[in-house]
C-alpha cells in the first residue's frame, strides 16, 4: 500500500507542525481550573464584606503562603490561557505573515509584562 500521495498533503503532526492536542487539552484544563480560581477570587473580593475591607486585610492574606500560591496560580493560568486563545485568534484571522508575527510579539510582550508585574506584587509582600 502506498501512502506517497498523502505524505505531501495532510496537516500532519511534524516538527514544523506540532500536534495541537496538548494545547487544546491545556486550554480545557486551565479553563476548568480558572473557573474555580476566579470564582473563589470573585466571592472573596466582592461579596464577603468587601465594603469594610482594609489594605491591612489584603496584606494579611497575601502573607499566607497558601494564598500566595493561589494568586500565583491564578495569575499564571489566566495569562497563559489568554495568551493561547489570542494566539489562536491571530493564527486564524491575521493573514499577512509580518502583521501576524508583529501582533503575536506584541501580545506576548504584554503578557510577559503583566506576569512580571503580578509576580513582583505578590512576592513583594513579606509576612
Amino acid at each position: 500500500m502506498s501512502f506517497s500521495r498523502s505524505e505531501s498533503g495532510g496537516a500532519g503532526a511534524t516538527a514544523a507542525h506540532p500536534t495541537g492536542s496538548y494545547g487544546w487539552l491545556f486550554q480545557r484544563v486551565s479553563g476548568v481550573a480558572l473557573f474555580v480560581l476566579v470564582l473563589v477570587h470573585f466571592v472573596l473580593m466582592h461579596c464577603m464584606g468587601a465594603e469594610r475591607r482594609l489594605y491591612a486585610d489584603v496584606m494579611a492574606r497575601l502573607s499566607n503562603p497558601l494564598w500566595k500560591t493561589f494568586d500565583l496560580a491564578l495569575l499564571a493560568l489566566a495569562l497563559s490561557h489568554g495568551w493561547y486563545g489570542a494566539w489562536g485568534i491571530v493564527q486564524d484571522c491575521v493573514r499577512p505573515a509580518g502583521a501576524r508575527v508583529a501582533l503575536l510579539v506584541l501580545i506576548a510582550a504584554a503578557a510577559l509584562a503583566l506576569f512580571c508585574l503580578g509576580l513582583v506584587t505578590i512576592l513583594a509582600v513579606r509576612p
Binding site: 501512502f3 498523502s6 495532510g10 496537516a11 500532519g12 503532526a13 495541537g20 494545547g23 487544546w24
Partner: peptide, 20 residues
C-alpha cells in the same frame, strides 16, 4: 487499518484543532 496515520494527519495545526 490506517487509524494511526490518519489521526496523525488530522492532528496538526491545520487539522481538527483549527475547528473552533
Amino acid at each position: 487499518e490506517a487509524r494511526g496515520e490518519r489521526l496523525a494527519l488530522v492532528d496538526g495545526r491545520d487539522g481538527v484543532w483549527r475547528c473552533r
